[in-house]
């Protein structure tokens, strides 16, 4: 038993230091492409750390959104950047040295070290044992409609936060669409191998997504994880050059983007009228309400993430249009 604990501690130490080391290399390396690859690796190691910290839900979200989709967004932006910027030829040292004066650099470093020390001191002053809200969550879990505590917090106890969260997602696509141009077609590179792979993979991903959605009620999973897998399937389809629906103009797509937030708002209004409090579910119906919210949220999250990926690939508005 003790040996296992020792191995685990050694593993934790290694993982922690690797995370820090990777971040260091990622942020202070002279090759942007390498930085992005390191970022994705970093995300995957973070996912392992979440598992070690008994946070499988966060691990799933990190692997799919943090490493996966953010990584895809970064890669696609980098490719675009390279076509725009002649100084970014791969293989050469790409980046200018920090323009900061040496003295300023050392001041910044000194400040960082002091801040690190102060924060570390504060963290170490925390009590070594603290219940947080775990007792409150556990005692009310039975009336939440689900048996998985993370889902209970996200969809029920703190459902109002998640409502605003859905608004943030809607904002992100509204924002990318308003900043990027009107065309939809990103340049797509296809390869036969990738195509076959994607044909095999997409249905699997959609199944995984549906499974995660369903399982979220009583085990790790739920709308965010399911939605991001769905988004990933979409990204793969785009990469394989599927003649994707015209993302921006299609009314159906807009409906899918709005479905999640709209379901939250509608349910909030309904419960406000019937129960007197927004998002207060009657215990008997809580499970159904949560499943409905999660299903529509999954659709919206998946579509949003896909649309963010496609949207970031499009041409930008060149000139000032709004302002006379």
């Amino acid at each position: 038993m003790e040996a296992v604990g020792l191995w685990q501690s050694a593993f934790d130490l290694m993982l922690g230091f690797s995370l820090f080391g990777l971040a260091w290399r990622m942020l202070f390396c002279a090759d942007l492409f390498k930085s992005i690859v390191l970022f994705i690796t970093f995300g995957l190691l973070m996912a392992i750390a979440w598992v070690r910290l008994e946070a499988p839900d966060v691990a799933l979200a990190e692997a799919t959104i943090g490493a996966g989709l953010t990584g895809a967004l970064l890669m696609s932006a980098f490719a675009k950047l390279r076509t725009l910027d002649n100084s970014l030829k791969s293989g050469q040292p790409l980046l200018p040295r920090p323009r900061l004066h040496v003295i300023n650099f050392w001041i910044a470093l000194l400040f960082t070290v002091l801040l690190t020390g102060g924060l570390a001191y504060a963290v170490l002053s925390l009590p070594s044992h603290s219940p947080g809200l775990s007792d409150a969550v556990m005692s009310q879990l039975d009336s939440s409609g689900v048996t998985h505590p993370v889902t209970a917090v996200l969809l029920n106890f703190r459902g109002y936060d998640t409502l605003l969260e859905m608004a943030v997602l809607l904002l992100s696509i509204q924002s990318v669409w308003s900043m990027a141009g009107m065309s939809d077609a990103g340049e797509v590179h296809t390869s036969p191998v990738l195509n076959v792979l994607i044909q095999l993979l997409s249905p699997v991903l959609i199944l995984v997504s549906a499974y995660l959605l369903w399982v979220g009620a009583h085990a790790p999973g739920g709308a965010f994880q399911a939605g991001s897998i769905l988004g990933a399937a979409g990204v793969l389809l785009v990469l394989s050059g599927r003649p994707l629906f015209n993302l921006k103009k299609s009314w159906l797509i807009r409906l899918m983007l709005v479905a999640g937030p709209a379901a939250f708002i509608a349910l909030a209004t309904l419960t406000l009228i019937n129960e007197g409090q927004l998002l207060k579910y009657p215990v008997a119906n809580a499970a159904n309400y949560i499943l409905l919210l999660e299903t529509l949220a999954t659709v919206s999250i998946g579509t949003t993430l896909l649309a963010l990926f496609v949207g970031s690939q499009t041409e930008a508005v060149q000139q000032d249009q709004s302002h006379q």
Binding site: L133, A136, F157, R158, Y160, Q277, L279
Partner: peptide
């Protein structure tokens, strides 16, 4: 004041 979700603080918002 309004108790969102019907859950009093600290559990709710």
């Amino acid at each position: 004041s309004h108790v969102a979700g019907g859950w009093l603080a600290p559990l709710g918002i």
